[in-house]
Amino acid sequence: ATEMRVATWLPPTHPQNTDVLPTWGKWIEEATEGRVTLKLEYNMGHPKDMFALVEDGVVDASWTFHGYVPGRFRLTQIVEQPGLGADAEAASVAYWRVYEKYFTKANEHDGLELMGLFTHAPGQIQTANPISSLADLRGMKIRLGGGIQGELGGRMEVTPVNAPASKVYEMMQQGVIDGTFLPVCEQKTLRLSEVAPNLTLLPGGMYLGSFAIFANPDFLDSLDPKDKEAIMKVSGEKLSQMAGQVWDQCGVDALKASREAGVNVVEVGQNDPMAKQFQTLSEGMDKVWIQSVSDLDVDAEKALQELRDTARNYKPNVAAN
């Protein structure tokens, strides 16, 4: 059997490594009747190196966060825009369809074969102290990732602190930061429930994060054409949907565990003042994004509209696996 080496990061206990990639591997093995198997390789380097490792054939496939390589990936920010109001599964399916239809020609994933696109569950506000209004965040030291979070943080006038997500626990506990924007899943995976015991859930969350799963084209071409076809069949939308589902589930589990651990979970209602505040605050960010990609030969506005329609009308069918 041919081994497909997939470089991965995050701890081996993260759902991406216990569920998403192994399930994909099982699909591949079944589809190729055991001729291709999947092997996870840890510690290959920083998440931002994954694109290059695959392109240069050091490993055969990998996955990573687009935001680690700013500048190169601008169209992928389509799914991160605030106000999508969908969970990760719906967003991932819509994202894959729209990206394929509108953006493939821009060739952002040059040198790579795109196998799947997905998002994490919506980013939420996780703080040391409770907040009753977005204005409470003003001047707070908040750890922010790049891209869309930076823009949101700027509009909320927080004191931005930049650090990798893996350092958030340490910084929260020491009080170097007062809070962070991250998906609920990280309450569990980064043990944030211990240090950020106040979770403010805005309806539909604040933003999403864009991830890709990709493979080396030469590797795929080196396989028997019928095996390659079989692999492609269990990738794409099917893979994207499954990944979104797993990341949603992680958030659901984490929320339950956090509640049991006594975390103060505030669910902001659609018509609550804080939701309204957020809407006002994030208004026009999508326009800024559309403007920022206007030099590319794509219809970003139409794509965004279609993404929103698809995601909001998405009906989860029977679980793919």
């Binding site: 935001g67 680690y68 390589v69 700013p70 500048g71 190169r72 040059d110 990732g145 790049g146 891209g147 930076g150 930049n162």
Partner: peptide, 9 residues
């Protein structure tokens, strides 16, 4: 590919 840093570009 115009890769830039996250904050200062």
């Amino acid at each position: 590919r115009n890769v830039t840093t996250e904050y200062l570009h």
